[in-house]
Every structure is written in C-alpha cells, then in structure tokens.
Amino acid sequence: MKGDDELASDDESMLQVEKEFHIACKQNKVEKVKLLLERHRVQVDSVNLSGQTALHWAVGSGHDEVVKILIQKKANVDLQDKNGYSLLHCAVRQGHLKIIQYIVDDLFSLKPKDVTKDGKTSFLLAAEYGHADVLSFLMNHGLKLSDVDTAGNTILHLAAKGGYSHVMQELFFPDEESEQQRITKKLIDTKNENGEAALHIAAENGHTECVRMLLESDAVCQISICNKENRNALHLAVKNGDEKLARLLIDKGMQLDAQDEKQKTSLHLAAENNLPIMARFLLKKGCNMGIVDDRGQTALHITAELGFIDVADLLIVAGSDLKVQDKQNKNPLQVAVRADQVHMVDMLIKAQLYLTWKEVRFYYVFILQVVPIAFQSLWCLLF
C-alpha cells in the first residue's frame, strides 16, 4: 500500500469520479461516499494503478462506518493490492483494532496463509508496526507466531528493529503465557538471511530496552551469538557509540575482547570510528590493548593511520605498546609517517621520547641506588 497520506490523484487509469470516491473514503466523508455510490453509480471496486480499492483506503484509515457502507454495497473483501495487501493487512498495519475485529469476527476473513509480496503475514505486520493489542488479538485467533517473511525475519526481528519493547513485553512477560508465546520464545536465536538474530537488530538500532528483554526473558538468548561478520551485540553497540547499551551487555556477561571475522575487538572498532568516549569506557572496563587484528595492528596502529588524536592519546596514556609491529613490520609511528599524519607523528615521537626517558631514568636510579647498596652488602660479607 502507498504511504499513509498518498492517493493516486494523478492516476490516469481511473476516472475523475473514481478518484473522488477513493479520496472521500480515505477522508471519511460519509455523505459524499453515499452520494457517489447512489447517484453517480461509481464502481465500488474501482482500483488505482497500485491495485488499491476504496475499501483498502477506508480500512487502512480506520473509518469503520465507511467500511460497512462499502461492504453493504458488495465491495469485494478478498481483493489484494499489487503489494499483496489484503483488507486485514491494511488494518493491521495501521493498528485499527476495531476494524480488525469486524473483519475477523463479522466477515470471517482471517486467512493465515495470506501474505504480502515481501512475505508478511498479519501477525508479522502487527510486530513490525508495534501494535501489541493487535498482536494479542491475532494470537487469540490462532495465527502462527513462527512465520517468517521473505528475508527470514521472525516476529522478534521485526519488533526488535522498531524498538517495540511493549511488543516484547507481550511476547516474553505476559500475564498468562499461551502455547503460542512458548513457540515464539523458541525463535529467540533464529537468524534471518543476513545472519542476524533479534539481539543483533536491537543492538544495531540502539534499542536498549529490547536488548534487556531478550536477555532477561526466561527464553534467554545466547548473549555471544554472532552475525555473518562474526560480530556480537557488543561490537554493534560500540560501533554506534552506544555506551549505555555496551554497559548493559558487559554487565550481563558479554566477553569484552571478542574478535570479529577480521579479528577486530570492540576497542579496534572504537578506534577506527573515532569514538574517544567509547574507547575510554572500554579501557576502564579492562579491555586488552595488545590484541591485533588480521593486519597485525593494535588499536593504536589504527588511530595512527587515520589520525584520530583523541583516541590515540587515551591509548598511549593507558600504556599501549608503541613498539609492536604489524604484518608490514611497522610500529604505530611508522604507520603514521606512511599515512602522512603530521600531528600523530609528533604525538608518537614525544611519547617515544618520554618512554625512553623513563627507561633511562630507571637505569639511572638503579645504578645510583641499587648498585651501591649491593656493593656495600658484598663488602660487608667479604670483610
């Protein structure tokens, strides 16, 4: 179905009176609808280029009186538009529960096998658009929660994408659990065609409460589950700079230094996305700065190459190794030189000078303090 506010006013496949009829039905102009049907004898099932009838518009707009008028005039209740949307799909998408009840109970038009072109059942649409009350109603009428769309998305994927925690609440924490909900909980780690579980989608979109519900339901999902890039929810939260979500995941037991398919840790991702606040958070949590990716680079190498001064400064202060070499046998300073990162080169030179000074100072203290004491002890033993 087209956008909520669109009508095919320039649809050359329709007569002008038919366009007016569609608009009147969408805008709930009851008297005009009656006039067009009775006096102008407009075709009740006239369709636009998208295959939508006036009944589609009335149902999608939630105008129950217009809906009943059209049905009394023998409008075809089984027509689907070119995207495969039936009347029930239109009502579910917009969350018009009163009309959904009328369609299901009075018209007896509940066909579980009816799907849109992208494989959405009425139940999946209720989840996708966040209508928990509609979802509950459909569950009570026996629709299957185990359906998936053409992209492999379950009801949990769709609710997670929209951040609909109230839908999650209906699924995972009902007042009285049904067999349908028990079936849904078994889908908690199901992956779609992109290799994503509901946890990945919720994390990717920053929906912390949905993540919490997935982790705290009695169907508890695998917290370390990975997508096709071998990234877990923490990788996704860190990449997006979502400290609140990252904190939740770590507190729930997420492995801090897990590596993705390119051997990058969360710290690598914070570095390459120039996220100093996230990098500081991970360092405070005790992440391992010495882990290298598939190029043999630490997070400091990455900041050196990209010129991200703030993150590099945090890593240097925290004690990141300035001498470790990547697979090209280059340390962070040499990487910065090659990338022509002038300010980074200056910072790393100063850091190396400071490190050298500390080493020299250590040996100086050792010579002046430890050696004389040792010599004195030896002298006493000998004499």
Rank of each mutant, 00 (worst) to 15 (best):
F362A: 09
W357R: 14
Q369P: 06
Q352G: 07
V337D: 02
Q352W: 00
A339F: 01
A351C: 00
L381G: 11
T356A: 15
F362S: 08
L368F: 03
A374P: 08
Q334W: 01
K350R: 13
W357Q: 15
A336R: 01
D346A: 15
A374F: 00
I349R: 04
D346M: 13
L378Q: 13
I367G: 09
C380V: 10
H343K: 11
A374L: 04
L381C: 11
F366L: 06
R361F: 14
K350V: 09
Q334P: 05
V345Y: 00
W357G: 15
T356Y: 10
V337K: 03
V360I: 14
I367D: 06
F362Y: 10
Q376H: 09
F375E: 10
F366N: 15
V342K: 09
Q341S: 10
L382P: 12
S377F: 14
Y363A: 03
C380S: 09
V342Q: 09
A336K: 00
S377L: 04
V370H: 00
F362V: 04
I349H: 08
A374T: 09
Q369V: 08
L348Q: 03
Q376T: 11
L355N: 06
P332K: 01
E359P: 03
P332R: 00
A339G: 07
L382D: 11
P332L: 03
A374E: 15
S377G: 08
H343I: 10
R361P: 04
Q376I: 13
V371K: 00
D346I: 14
W379N: 06
L348I: 02
Q376R: 03
F366K: 12
N331A: 02
K350H: 10
W379V: 12
F375L: 12
D346G: 06
V345K: 01
Q376W: 12
D340S: 09
T356D: 11
Q352I: 04
N331T: 03
L355P: 05
A374D: 14
I373M: 04
L348C: 01
Q341P: 02
L378M: 09
C380A: 07
Q341W: 00
Q369T: 08
Q376K: 04
V360A: 12
V337I: 11
I349M: 10
Q376M: 07
V370R: 04
Y363R: 13
A351Y: 02
